[in-house]
Write a protein that binds this DNA or RNA. Structure first.
Lengths: 230, 230
DNA sequence: TGAATGTGTAAAGAAACCGTAAATTCGGGG
DNA sequence: CCCCGAATTTACGGTTTCTTTACACATTCA
C-alpha cells in the first residue's frame, strides 16, 4: 500500500499507530526524534508522513519547515494541544492536516485515505541533484560545479533549487516571484532578472548561450537537464 | 481570490462564514438547502464548497455524494457532531476535510488555504500534443517539428496551443483574439493574420496548401490533425 | 468589369523585455 | 557600534517581440 513514516517520541503512540496502520497493509517506518525523522524521509521517500509536534530535540514547526525543503508528499500533524494559533501555523507551514490527540484510529485512517487519494504522481522527495557537471545538496544547501564548491546566497539557492526541481519545465516569472518573494511582489520582475544574472555568473553560465538556465522571453526561465558539450 | 460556496441552513453560521471569507477577499455564494447547494455548484463552479451535514431537506452525506457526481473541487464538511463514524463516512464519501463546530474562523481559513494550495498545480487539461510529425509540450513550452526543435515566441506559442487544443474545429477570429489579446482587440484581425503567418513560417507550412493550419475564410482558423502526405 | 472585402507577406517603427554594472540600503554577527 | 555580505534600488544599452504601415493578390458580388 505504501510507506508511511511516523515521527513521534512516545512509544505508546507509535505502537498505537503501527498496529492500526499495518492492519491496513501500510508499511510503517518510525522515528523518535526530529533529526531521525528528517533523515528517514530523505532516505526512504515515504508516501506520507505523520509528525508529532511535541518532539524532544526540535520544535515541531521547525521540523515541518525543514521537511518541506525537500519533501512534497502529504504531512499530517499530531498534537496534544488544541490551540487555533498552533493549527494555523502548522497548516500554513505546509501541513496538509492537523489532528488533535486523543484521536480515533479510524478517523486518522480516513484522513490518510483522503490525502493518498488526492496524491500527485510527482516524486515526493527532492533532496539532491547531480548530473556529472553540477551537484546540489538541498539539505546542506551546498552547490558543486565541475568539482568546485560554489557559495550561494539564500535567494540564489532557493531559485536554483526551484528551477532544478522542475527541470526542463518553464517556470513563469510570477510563479518564481511568488515562491521567493511572496504574492506581493509578483510584478517586480526586475529582482528576478538580477538574481538570475548573479546565479548565472556563479554557475559560469552566460545568457547568450545558456548551458544551465535558459530564458523564455516574456514568460520565465527553465533549467536545462540535457547538456551536450565537451 | 475565487468563489466559495457555503451550504448551511443556519443564518448565523452563514453570516459568520460570510464575514470571515469576504474579509479575505473570497467571493461567497450561499445556499440554505441541499438542493439549492447542488444547483449552485453546478451553475457557478465554485473553487471550494463548505457543506454542513445537518441540512433540513436532505441527508448531508447524500448531498456530498450527489455533489461528487459532477463536482471535483475541494469540499469541507461542517458538523456539530463529533462522532468518529460520521467523520469516516464523510471523508470516504469524497470530503477533503471535516471540521467540528464550534470552530475558529482562522483554523477554517487555514484549512481552506491548504486545499486551494494543493489544487493550484493541478494537471492542465491540455498538456501535450504529439502526432508523428509535430510535438508540443506545454509545460516545457517546447515544439518539435520533424525532429527539429523550433522556438516560438509567447503569442505564437499561445496561438498554437489554442488551435491544437481544439484540433480540427474552427476557432473564429473573435475567439482567438479574445483569448490572446483580450476583448478590447476582438476586431483587430490584422494582428492575427500576421501572427498566423509567422507561425506557419516556423512550422514550414504554406497558406496555399496548408498541412497544419487551415484558413476558413471569413470565419477563422483550424489546426489539422489528420495529415496524409509523403 | 470593377469596387469591396478578406487574406497573405514584407518591412519599418514602437514598445516591451532582458542583462549587466554600480550605487544604496538592509540586516545579522562580531 | 561597526562591518560585511546580501538584498534592493537605480541607471542604461542592446535585443526580441509586438504593433503599425504598406502593398499585392484572391474572391465575391454588384
Amino acid at each position: 500500500m505504501g510507506k508511511i513514516l511516523v515521527i513521534d517520541d512516545e512509544p505508546q503512540i507509535r505502537r498505537f499507530l503501527r498496529i492500526g496502520l499495518t492492519a491496513k497493509a501500510y508499511d510503517v517506518l518510525e522515528a523518535n526524534t526530529g533529526v531521525a525523522g528528517l533523515e528517514l524521509s530523505a532516505l526512504e521517500s515515504p508516501r506520507l508522513v505523520i509528525l508529532d509536534l511535541g518532539l524532544p530535540d526540535m520544535d515541531g514547526i521547525e521540523v515541518l519547515k525543514s521537511l518541506r525543503e525537500f519533501y512534497h508528499g502529504p504531512v499530517i500533524i499530531l498534537s496534544v494541544r488544541n490551540r487555533e494559533q498552533e493549527k494555523v501555523a502548522a497548516l500554513d507551514a505546509g501541513a496538509n492536516d492537523f489532528v488533535v490527540k486523543p484521536f480515533g484510529i479510524n478517523e486518522l485512517l480516513a484522513r490518510i485515505r483522503v490525502l493518498l487519494r488526492a496524491g500527485s504522481d510527482a516524486p515526493s522527495v527532492f533532496a539532491e541533484y547531480d548530473d556529472g557537471v553540477i551537484q546540489l545538496n538541498v539539505l546542506q544547501r551546498k552547490l558543486v560545479v565541475n568539482g568546485r564548491p560554489v557559495h550561494l546566497s539564500r535567494k540564489e539557492f532557493d531559485l536554483l533549487k526551484l528551477l532544478m526541481e522542475y527541470q526542463d519545465r518553464v517556470l513563469t516569472q510570477q510563479q518564481i516571484l511568488d515562491r521567493l518573494w511572496g504574492k506581493t511582489h509578483v510584478q517586480d520582475t526586475h529582482y528576478l532578472r538580477i538574481l538570475v544574472g548573479k546565479l548565472r555568473a556563479k554557475l559560469g553560465d552566460e545568457a547568450s548561450a545558456p548551458r544551465f538556465i535558459e530564458t523564455e522571453p516574456g514568460v520565465g526561465y527553465r533549467f536545462l537537464s540535457n547538456r551536450n558539450e565537451p
